[in-house]
């Protein structure tokens, strides 16, 4: 009872959406933690060359004599400490992980954004144009969503061969459908509103109605989908790379690092596999925490 009367004036003099948003985020500690962790990870990968003791791709810097050293070991002259140990090549795991994260994040985020672009466009146009085009797009969406993601990616990579670009392409093809479905649903709900009808009677060009009116109203649900999809894209990329059909060995992502350490894990050298795995886990969980909370905030059903 008291809650209702307390919140009534707040609703009347609505503060900016952004401030509400920030306040809401701070209130949920878990989501805030996810956001902070994810930001740190982004910063760490961007500035990786400055932080890491070694360029893991520069073979000159690697010493095979330092292979498979446990965490905390130093190299022979004590100039470098391998805080997370080294892999079989004598590569510092900490450096390897940060550089691996780069590949993982670029592929994951890049493909998610590209898929968002393609999917949103198709979904919006489908909702706006309707008719056969809509039926066709939605059939494709259904087909795509009923097929396991890993299989689609597998088919594409089996046909095209492995490269970073092909992995991105595979992820886009796997993920566009979710965006298309979300965008179409949101746009359809918005289309029936009076202001869209009014805009149409004013003969405002279609593309303008699409971009200026329909798109902004679909954004909240698309943002939620995008965060979750980034996490699943990163996970799928890692899986493909772990299977050895993802990114090539020259640009090892986290998945490849884990696969590389797998054979030593059975011998008890846990760190080669474990730490990249933990890094992967932290990335995915932190994005999911943020996404989960975004869904709670942006979902209009929870607002009332």
């Amino acid at each position: 009872m008291t809650n209702l009367t307390d919140s009534a004036p707040v609703r009347e003099c609505e503060p900016s959406l952004f401030r509400l948003f920030v306040a809401d985020f701070i209130r949920s500690r878990v989501a805030l933690l996810g956001l902070v962790v994810f930001t740190i990870i982004i910063l760490a990968t961007v500035f990786a060359p400055l932080i890491t003791p070694q360029d893991p791709y520069d073979l000159m810097q690697l010493d095979i004599m330092d292979g498979r050293l446990p965490p905390g070991s130093s190299n022979f002259d004590g100039s470098t400490t391998y805080i997370l140990g080294t892999d079989d090549q004598g590569r510092d795991m900490f450096s390897g992980i940060l550089y691996g994260l780069r590949t993982s994040l670029i592929v994951g985020v890049g493909s998610a954004l590209l898929a968002a672009l393609v999917g949103t466009l198709l979904g919006l146009v489908a909702a706006y144009v309707g008719g056969r085009f809509e039926t066709f797009v939605m059939r494709l969406v259904d087909l795509q969503l009923s097929f396991p993601t890993i299989l689609t990616a597998l088919m594409i990579l089996a046909v095209l061969g492995k490269s970073v670009l092909n992995v991105v392409l595979a992820l886009v093809i796997v993920e566009w459908a979710t965006y298309a479905r979300t965008a179409r649903a949101a746009a359809l709900a918005e289309r029936r509103r009076d202001y869209i009808v009014a805009a149409e009677t004013l003969a405002i060009p279609s593309w303008r109605i699409l971009l200026r009116h329909l798109l902004p109203n679909c954004l909240p649900s698309l943002i939620v989908v995008a965060t979750i999809q980034i996490a699943s894209a990163i996970a799928l990329e890692a899986t493909l790379s772990f299977l050895g059909i993802g990114v090539p060995i020259t640009e090892p992502s986290l998945g490849l690092l884990i696969a590389n350490g797998y054979k030593y894990m059975l011998a008890g050298d846990y760190w080669v596999s474990l730490f990249p795995g933990v890094a992967l886990l932290v990335v995915i969980v932190s994005i999911n925490l943020v996404g989960d909370h975004l869904r709670d905030i942006l979902n209009p059903k929870n607002k009332s």
Binding site: A231, S232, A235, L236, A238, T239, F242, L243, G255, I258, Y262, M265, L266, G268, Y270, S273, L274, G277, L280, L281, I284, V285, N288, D292
Partner: peptide, 22 residues
């Protein structure tokens, strides 16, 4: 159950091996 959805299954598999086998 959220972890069951979001964790990559190969990673979980590795952890299972590490725990129960190694």
């Amino acid at each position: 159950s959220i972890f069951g959805f979001s964790l990559p299954s190969f990673w979980v598999g590795l952890m299972l091996i590490m725990t129960f086998s190694v």
